[in-house]
Design a protein around this nucleic acid. Structure first.
Lengths: 212, 212, 212, 212
DNA sequence: CACTAAACGAGACGGTACGTCCCGTCTTGAA
DNA sequence: TTCAAGACGGGACGTACCGTCTCGTTTAGTG
């Protein structure tokens, strides 16, 4: 049976997360108050504590996890539309870059608390790199086998090719590192221009992988 | 030059920064109080405000900038000892990785506030990448001029461009990106083992740059 | 037919009052919570509100009235056993003093909130004084008339004696005042010793009334 | 040199006590909030906690003790004006009764929380009785010796009269009990009428003591 | 028998007050 | 002057009750 929920829209928990997200976009992480979030959600402070007993700390943690997950979900959807590995990487680069640039929270943090991100040379990156590499590997294998990765219908490709296992793993790792690097710092490339992105992918990311 | 530093004299400003740093290492960023810092420094709260009129926010900002600068200074000293580009990159990788692993503050943050670092896909990286690339470029040019070549790995560096001027800039950029990436996420490499690092540098970072 | 009521014993209202009484004895007046009372009664908070719509305030008021009434009921029963005015006063003094000393709630309040009782110089005493005086007057009249008050079978004695009306009223008032005073503060008397009480009654309370 | 104090009048502690007193007079004991008191005092909540670390509980306790002390101080001053024991008792009765009747806080409590005072049959009264009796005893001795107590210049009379020591102690106790009783419950006497009070003192309080 | 009404348990919610902690400002007094 | 010391207003935090309300689930009484 459909839950009529309670007052406005979405269950309370999601409303609180969204409200907190909005506040962080407005005030920054450090200056966002649990009161702010509650007010923004149209709920009382007590209710926020009922859903997030850990208080402000838990709220901040969860809103970041939540938003990160949403980012990857949208990235995943965008990337599935690609017809080949090169297009997939290009689409991913463009989407990720656009998302970061138009990301209210990130921009607010960069504006008010850039220091928090300076030490981004962190071990946490390991997880993201590995995740992206794992995602790319099957497409990379098909790409290397056929010259194209084919329509990307599923996350986990059949990958009946045991040969080159080490090669593709290593290559996927390399690809993920470079993609992440360019998303974070495009350098002289304009990642909003599809032509430039296609060129970047061909000449710097996938170059040398084709004839391996 | 005798550095008495630490507890009693040494100028107040530095003592406050060091004290704050210690507190952050102990309590984490969010839980470090201006009182904590003042007490740790053996100074009164009023004095801290005299040196950091911006209060807690300014204090946090400056302590991060200060520590970041100290990190790069030490990295610079270490790297100057190298006799060639490959050793330089290797030394840099090892030092940076070791520094991060033994970095009290960073480890404390990773322990207590890992979410802050999840979205490390940030534009801030641009500055660091460019800085490192600019530092590497002259060494790279000398390296390419005097020439050394290692066994070619399975990965081909992006070598689409024939002319030299653009080459070194582009290659330095590539090198900086990959170095940063491996510092942040070593993947399967053990960055404390000089042999493995030397191998990594040869096969994945400098491969393909030699005989372009 | 006996009403099995709901769950355990006694109707809900009485169970709540008793539970609240127990809590006050444990925590004191100010720290007794409606939740405490509900939990102690084995009922839900909602049920308490159904029986005491006035909430906590009403609950506290009623539990005090309830207990006060129970005290006077028991005092009344004890006092009816007396065979004469002197014994009646003595029994009343002893029972009242013993009841106060072993009164969980009162002792708890004295322990935790003694200030509430310091200004006991209150108008409320009027009612109690008058009530006791009214109760004593018929017995006093019989006592003065016969030298004994005789077995006390009824609260309202026939009192067909118009003479000495003013006298007995005034004397009863005096008797009530002194009895109350000694219950509250026995001074040098040990109100648990029947001999001392008898002596006190004879020499300080009833002295001078006999031959009036 | 005049103490500039801080802001308005009186030191902070006294201002808080007075403000709390005012609030209790307005809202009653149970409904007086620490916020109310702070606001009334024109101070912040934090400051109240600085002066009364025990919070609301301590504040309530101390305000009651404070007011009680003020009451007895004023009573003492009034009573010192008397020229003899009878006048002293009369003045005390009148002042005490008037004070209770015009006592904002007590009247507020009687209006809103009468139950708190119903069980005024409390051991606390012992202290007050003893205190008053001790104060009265020297005057009573002089009264019995001379038929008058003489101008009351000092609290502690010389009392070189060993005789009747037990008598006066007992008589003072009796006097204190009756005085307290009539203050609390005047019964049929109008304690605002000097003539009635003088008559009451003569016929019911001091009667029988003179020729003892 | 089914249906209704009443009492109850359970729990979400807005709200208020508590007591704690920290911030940033200010004043005072001593070196 | 510089600094330690500390009082103060302000405000957020996390906790705890309060009083209200809405759900289901019995349980009893009645048509």
């Amino acid at each position: 049976m459909a839950r009529p929920v309670n007052s406005q829209h979405g269950d309370a928990r999601t409303r609180i997360l969204q409200a907190t997200y909005d506040c962080v976009a407005r005030y920054g992480l450090a200056k966002t108050t649990l009161d702010d979030a509650a007010r923004q959600a149209g709920l009382s402070r007590a209710t926020v504590y009922r859903h997030f007993p850990g208080g402000r700390d838990q709220l901040i943690k969860e809103v970041i996890s939540w938003e990160t997950m949403r980012f990857f979900e949208r990235l995943y959807e965008v990337v599935l539309e690609a017809s080949g590995l090169d297009e997939m990487v290009a689409l991913g680069l463009m989407f990720a870059h656009r998302a970061l640039k138009s990301h209210d929270v990130l921009q607010k943090i960069l504006e008010t608390e850039p220091e928090l991100l300076l030490p981004q040379l962190t071990v946490e990156a390991d997880r993201v790199t590995a995740l992206i590499a794992a995602f790319l590997q099957p497409h990379l294998e098909r790409y290397l086998a056929t010259g194209r990765s084919g329509p990307c219908g599923c996350l986990q490709a059949p990958t009946g090719l045991p040969s080159r296992g080490v090669d593709t793993s290593q290559a996927a790792d390399y690809l993920a590192r470079m993609a992440l690097s360019f998303i974070a710092s495009p350098g002289r490339w304009d990642l909003t221009d599809p032509d430039q992105v296609a060129h970047l992918v061909r000449t710097e990311l996938l170059a040398g992988l084709t004839g391996a």
